[in-house]
Design a protein around this nucleic acid. Sequence first.
DNA 1: TCTCCCTATGACAACGGTAACATAAAGAGC
DNA 2: GCTCTTTATGTTACCGTTGTCATAGGGAGA
Lengths: 330, 330
Amino acid sequence: MTTIKDVAERAGVSIKTVSRVLNEEPHVRAQVKERVLEAARELDYKPNRAASRLAGGRSFLIAHLYDNPNPSYISALHIGAARRCRELGYHLVVEPVNSQDKDLLGLVRRLFATIAPDGILLSPPLSENTEFVESVRQLGGRIALISATHGDEWTHISTDERGASKAIMAHLLGLGHRRIGFVRGHPQHFGATLRYDGYCQSLVEAGLALEPALVAQGYFDLQSGLEATRSLLALPQRPTAIFASNDEMAVGALMAAREFGLNVPEDLSIIGFDDTPMSRLISPALTTVRQPLEAMGAAGVETIVSPDKAPGDYLDFEIILRDSCAPPRG
Amino acid sequence: MTTIKDVAERAGVSIKTVSRVLNEEPHVRAQVKERVLEAARELDYKPNRAASRLAGGRSFLIAHLYDNPNPSYISALHIGAARRCRELGYHLVVEPVNSQDKDLLGLVRRLFATIAPDGILLSPPLSENTEFVESVRQLGGRIALISATHGDEWTHISTDERGASKAIMAHLLGLGHRRIGFVRGHPQHFGATLRYDGYCQSLVEAGLALEPALVAQGYFDLQSGLEATRSLLALPQRPTAIFASNDEMAVGALMAAREFGLNVPEDLSIIGFDDTPMSRLISPALTTVRQPLEAMGAAGVETIVSPDKAPGDYLDFEIILRDSCAPPRG
DNA sequence: TCTCCCTATGACAACGGTAACATAAAGAGC
DNA sequence: GCTCTTTATGTTACCGTTGTCATAGGGAGA
């Protein structure tokens, strides 16, 4: 294995100079820098990160702590994060946990003591636990929060879920829907609240009444979506469209529609959120919202590696129009 | 941060002795061992893995190289692998890659040069690429292969996919089906071949003819499952059941059935494979096969950490009976 | 009883980087 | 031209562990 010493020798400089060049520290002449870089290239030198870390530098590891609500969500984050990591010479360590675990903080502490990641990526629901986030912060590590907002605004990676919700509503209203049912997401999920906000704002801005009866509570799982939609469809004056706060509940909504003998989208339009793989596979395919999850994972890594870079704006969402929406009957 | 030195001091021994105890090396008196362990416990000592690695020991990192065919598959592997890693003091590094990438081996080489994982977990399709697997092996790292078989049999983690296929067939045959269509999986996927093998063997053992017309090629995606099933249902004497080599194609089969005006399961039974989350959500819910993916991930880690442990037998699959199968009409 | 070997333990170097400090050379200000 | 900074580079200690080798003591075999 070639080491920094070999590179130094070949370039005719000291190892410290090589270190400087490789870490982009100042005070190296352009000419020397070039010489070092070339030597490194020729020897195919790759720094030993265990040594970097031990000497007080970075570990080039980023840990993603998550409690898995949804494989495709996590998977997409991983792909985006890992790709960016690779570009930056980092590596992504995954730590699936149980968010109910009493000793979560102990796990983080152990993480720092053993592999000392340069930062920690937190996704919902972990990123929404203010107390936990603060504790982790106090342990000294850098943090990037996916889809959550509290404390330092620099560290947040999110899409404008409220805006996405409004865009979906605009679509529905544009089709002519006036009675739109809403299935709320898990009460502790921050994004769920934003999605609901968007729903409410859209109605108000359209000059429509906000009927509490048209809003039902769900918990992001199929069953709750099914039950919530049942209650909505049982209304004397039933909605012509259902906006579910995520895809899984939208599938529940679809089942409820079937129970009521309603055709989707002719008799009932249905909207999901998240664009899980399933929303494409189900019939009719769901109109839904896609968050740029890979970009969010990448942005999280970015935030950790270069915390002083410009605070990221919202990342763009995308409305995926498929077959579950149509103008209302009559 | 407390180091090995602190522990040594507290226990009244040299750091080397502490190291010996912690690494379960021989030649330490039970009494001393106990003393060291207690000191470590009291100080909440956690070894610095960068230092371990640098000194020529293990890195306590295991990398999972994968090309993501299916988020829930990968996710389950990660959960199982990461859990076992945690129990063993290891950490799981994820490396999603493009299996078509020309420089895959370069990536592995870089991996070894920078973070030097103690082993590499390979899942399909990577684990099925003999040439690649051999190259990685030559780079010196330990390997665990998920669902693939070649070379050293110690390093394989798999379920008996042929057996699972036969179990599914037994179920179908038990229901009374005699004309069973089969949608093959991707030709390069080893498991797909095993599943097909199971289908063939079952027919033969049941004394039924193996009709080539009842077998259609698919590629694991929805569209190919849809098309394959269409061709099967267009047969003059159509099958009463369709066994698709994975869930996604089974969904395609479901759609094809609908196109033909067939009710599932009354007019047509459908079987999937993999038990993806979708198979539970779709209507009718799919009867399918579940592989113990978490256990497989854990076994992979185990294989890497303790390569001389007993070669794992097949891990048990499970038949998940749901609503997509019924006795044939008439 | 005397080797010889094995067990239990420690001292110390080594791993491959980075940080702190030293130093030489080059500009800046007067 | 002379001091005072600043820039460019090198020297060396150090990070926290494991490997190598040395050594003392105890038991087995002759």
